[in-house]
């Protein structure tokens, strides 16, 4: 049975970018209000899952030719790597640093190594969730 899902697809395309924006917002908001690496990563993953459900897998993989296993591996590397980064500066493993900077145009802004760590977390979440779902659904 082939159902006409033009509306669904159009809406999905639009919603995808809204969810994507939400994911990015949540990721950066996590430092001072609800959100963070886990939520951001999960929202991003759910956006991708929406696309996979609405369209078929082949189409999406053509559009987004990313190997999500590598994304997950890279994320884990990033998280563990920030831990070792602290060692380079003679601190204990996984010590995070933060400071406030005055940048032109942005004004005062806080930059922290937690963000890198959280980015790793988010990437692992995205990579693993998508890998799991894709592996199952691509199986014969």
């Amino acid at each position: 049975m082939k159902i006409n899902n033009v509306i669904l697809r159009t809406v999905a395309k639009l919603v995808f970018f809204i969810i994507l924006t939400l994911a990015v917002y949540l990721f950066f908001a996590g430092h001072n209000s609800p959100g963070g690496g886990f939520s951001g990563g999960l929202v991003l993953a759910s956006a991708l899952v929406l696309l996979f459900i609405v369209f078929d897998i082949e189409t999406i993989q053509k559009g987004i030719p990313i190997d999500f296993k590598l994304v997950a591996a890279f994320g884990a590397f990033l998280s563990v790597g920030t831990g070792f980064g602290a060692l380079v500066f003679g601190e204990n493993f996984l010590t995070q640093a933060f400071d406030y900077f005055n940048l032109p145009f942005f004004g005062e802004i806080e930059l922290t190594t937690v963000t890198i760590f959280e980015a790793g977390v988010a990437l692992v979440v995205v990579g693993v969730v998508v890998t799991i779902l894709l592996s199952i659904s691509e199986d014969e």
């Binding site: 979440v125 799991i132 199952i136």
Partner: peptide, 20 residues
Amino acid sequence: ILTSIVIGFAVTAVSLVLAY
């Protein structure tokens, strides 16, 4: 709990795949 939620998902995923 936040840690546990995500791990719980992983456990469910692995056991489901193991089952099928």
